[in-house]
Design a protein around this nucleic acid. Sequence first.
DNA 1: AGAATTGGTTGAGACGTTTCAAAAACCCCC
DNA 2: GGGGGTTTTTGAAACGTCTCAACCAATTCT
Lengths: 333, 333
Amino acid sequence: MGTTSIREVAERAGVSVGTVSNVLNRPDAVAPATRERVRRAIDDLGFVRNESARHLRAGRSRTLGLVVLDVTNPFFTDVARGVEDAANEAGLAVILCNSDERRDKEQAYLDLLEEQRVQGVLITPVDVDGDRLTRLRRRGVPVVLLDRHAGEGDYCSVAVDDVLGGELAAAHLRDLGHERIAYVSGPMSLAQCADRYRGAIAGGELEILAGTALNVASGRDAGERLLGLRNPPTAVFCANDLLALGVLQVMVARGLSVPGDISIVGYDDIEFAAAAAVPLSSVRQPRHLLGRTAAELLVAEAAAAEPGHIHRQVRFSPELVVRASSGPPKATL
Amino acid sequence: MGTTSIREVAERAGVSVGTVSNVLNRPDAVAPATRERVRRAIDDLGFVRNESARHLRAGRSRTLGLVVLDVTNPFFTDVARGVEDAANEAGLAVILCNSDERRDKEQAYLDLLEEQRVQGVLITPVDVDGDRLTRLRRRGVPVVLLDRHAGEGDYCSVAVDDVLGGELAAAHLRDLGHERIAYVSGPMSLAQCADRYRGAIAGGELEILAGTALNVASGRDAGERLLGLRNPPTAVFCANDLLALGVLQVMVARGLSVPGDISIVGYDDIEFAAAAAVPLSSVRQPRHLLGRTAAELLVAEAAAAEPGHIHRQVRFSPELVVRASSGPPKATL
DNA sequence: AGAATTGGTTGAGACGTTTCAAAAACCCCC
DNA sequence: GGGGGTTTTTGAAACGTCTCAACCAATTCT
């Protein structure tokens, strides 16, 4: 049923398959009359090209893979939109995959993408160990790191300076007079978490509360743990806004004042940060641009002549956005 | 480079291509020794199956399409996760597409999916006119409506009772004593918006403020317009939480009290609703389940023998969640 | 009028996999 | 050492598309 092939079209139009293919791919190489006849046959039969066959013949697909830590995180959906925009402009479709911060899922999706012979992969890797990626690349699949800096220049990458971001956040809190500051983190194996920490600790001490994931639930959990401390900090810097929102929820639920009792600074400046119970101070990243740039780099790398492609590392700067959730500590007793 | 084929594996292992294929697909039909030899060759060469070729041969792909209005909306990402879970269990990959509430983008993605010969399409359609979908289905592509009820029984569908949801929300506000209630909507061409309105107006009058899209910006816009009214309502029911958050932002920015000056009820109960400046009353939908069920239906339909598949319409019930954003109106003067 | 040019059209591979009937290799037993 | 049976392996065909050299028919040139 569903499958009408180019041959049936050719038969009906009374031409050869080559001609039908020409109508499809270089219409003006074929005489107007024939062209019309073929077009009509296509419509009548409801013919739709088989992309797999095209791909098989052409040797390259019109697809690109995007692997993120969690689509449920607004940061990544904004990034994904950027990727989508750039990919569409290049005539590519995007396969969006969720690693869920898990190595095995990441690997499974990479395998899948490779079987699909995607033109390349955009990925926010789960961990620093790039073994999986190296292998992929050795087999000729272009890989661009997303939201992660490629140190040794052997990948293209688009990132935001997370160390600087951490610095900005911590400096802001210290400037306000905070001395006991906690860092609420996701898994430290994530480069983002580690880098933001490195930046934050540069200016002074910092207590770490590492969670299991970069989401709201994990933030709530951290919030509870904060309250359990004998001598809780007067401010927390969270590795992303979801964690911050979780912490905030707990504080509000317990009747604590933010920033009166405790200041909170998030990271990413997702749209919901500004609309939170207490509008969240946060470190803003150019999310859409991040995705768009990464996709553009990938397209360029995929198009490049095999030899001598020079990997580019793009690094954007984050920006501190101060809102209501951060303020001076209560007068110290 | 990248492309090692089954034939090179065969050569290296000193067997025929048929045998390699057997090792891949029914390992125990091949003698242990040979199997090992082939496996080694595969590893040595870094061979990866070409999914397009498999698909071409098999006639059916291992992929399913999901078309949503906006990935940036947390409602849809949660739904998408449900779809992903179910699809993975069935060994299928998901291609996620954004129609952006635009007919042309929707059509473009449907074309793309059809060229990819996806096993089927899950879609929240942009408008009621099902012409695009009918055509798709006539060509043998299973289509399941998502978050949208298929009235005439000619599609499978998984939806939540939006009329009931609208009723719940409006009844709640009326019970609180509100008499002037506004409905902040997205485009009325979206069935969701229209149905929720129908439900809400069932119990009494309602003023409509239709916006251009179901997002926060559109909500802010509606908020501004609300404030411009000569005789503003004492409560608003929003077609989704993003709109509600937008309205809320404007109210808070203008120093109005919620629910004191104006009550707000949203729809979807996304995770951020509870964390909003004023925790949002909302109508909850089983998002994850919605996605999962839809994918399961699609898989079933795709597997079904061509003839006599009976389309199922699943309808879940929404649930009102009352939080702080809705309360009695100020004492009427 | 014949040669050369141009504009259209054709048909035979080839892409990488799977399938399946047929061939080959092996084993056991008389 | 030859038959019967089983287990392995083989090789060719097919999936739908695109490419490219070859071909055909008009036209234009000499």
